[in-house]
């Protein structure tokens, strides 16, 4: 079976009158298997959306090839678009229609039934808002309606472009559950995000993108493991003598000030046991390396999501 997505050496350069040449996408290649939850992670302006739009077939690349479910997105073919579900950054709705009318119109375009439309509205938790005009829905509700419209055609491959941007933490968690369930039904999901924790929580594999290039591709856990970074263990100051701190550090890095002592250890289990037996667990926090450290490592730049 063909891969869900195969992308080889995409390039796209914008030439602005004032900005000069911008290489929005600069030699991007990746492959997404069927059923995978694939994330494209990067700061704003990294080229995620442009990459996604080229893959979807909305933009033509200057060079490079795209295969979606084994075929090219160019030219537009109903056979292919009928198998795709797309949620764009802007919530693209017909003006002055209610949530139900909106999704029923999309259902008709995909040749799906009204009951399928109602089912999707229910799935995203908007059944009771079915008769509310789209412009009156909250940001989170609009995003969920947008995702419902993407799912109404029973797609094999779903593209979600920063669906949780500008949502409050609770609404974001709700969307995470929804996205997990979409993937659990066997659909391939491609998500762009600039939230580290979102990529870590949802994606099977993540491509880290910066300045138009993919810097690394892998699983979130694999990235962290490969980084082989020490675990940071912090306790409140004043519980340990200076001598005991040096003893526990055992030659590894330790930073102490008036408020806290921070150990960087490769043996967190041994250190935590010792701290527990000393009764020095006040203000304890343990932080392992995460994708933020991975980003710093692969791009040489601090993460500013």
């Amino acid at each position: 079976m063909d891969a869900a997505i195969e992308v080889a050496d995409l390039r796209k350069t914008y030439r602005g009158r004032r900005t000069g040449e911008i290489r929005a996408v600069d030699g991007v290649s990746f492959r997404v298997e069927r059923g995978e939850f694939f994330g494209i992670l990067g700061p704003n302006g990294a080229g995620k959306t442009t990459t996604l739009e080229i893959v979807e077939g909305l933009r033509k690349p200057d060079s490079g090839t795209v295969r979606l479910l084994g075929r090219s997105p160019w030219p537009h073919s109903p056979e292919l678009t009928g198998r795709l579900g797309v949620q764009l950054q802007a919530s693209a709705f017909f003006e002055f229609l209610t949530a139900r009318e909106q999704i029923e119109t999309f259902a008709e375009l995909y040749g799906a039934t009204k009951s399928r439309a109602a089912e999707m509205l229910d799935l995203v938790g908007l059944a009771e808002h079915a008769n509310v005009r789209c412009e009156k829905l909250s940001g989170g509700q609009q995003q969920r309606l947008s995702i419902a419209c993407a799912l109404v055609g029973d797609p094999e491959l779903v593209f979600l472009d920063e669906p949780t941007a500008a949502l409050d933490p609770q609404a974001r968690r709700n969307l995470w559950d929804l996205m997990r369930s979409i993937n659990a039904e066997g659909r391939t999901v491609v998500l762009t995000t600039h939230y580290m924790e979102e990529a870590e929580a949802l994606c099977d594999r993540v491509a880290i993108m910066d300045a138009g290039k993919i810097r690394a591709v892998g699983t979130p856990a694999g990235f962290v493991r490969d980084l082989d970074a020490p675990t940071k263990v912090t306790v409140a100051a004043g519980q340990l003598s200076g001598e005991r701190v040096r003893e526990l550090a055992a030659g590894e890095t330790v930073n102490a000030d008036e408020t806290a002592v921070v150990f960087e250890t490769r043996d967190p289990r041994g250190l935590l046991t010792a701290l527990a037996s000393d009764g020095a667990l006040e203000g304890l926090s343990v932080r392992t390396a995460n994708l933020e450290d991975v980003f710093l490592h692969v791009t040489g730049r601090e993460w500013r999501g």
Binding site: H76, T81, V86, A92, Y110
Partner: peptide
């Protein structure tokens, strides 16, 4: 240009 409706519809089986 603002709501990208046309862009979204280009990705449905209906033609522009």
């Amino acid at each position: 240009k603002r709501d990208k409706l046309l862009r979204r519809l280009r990705l449905t089986p209906a033609s522009v």
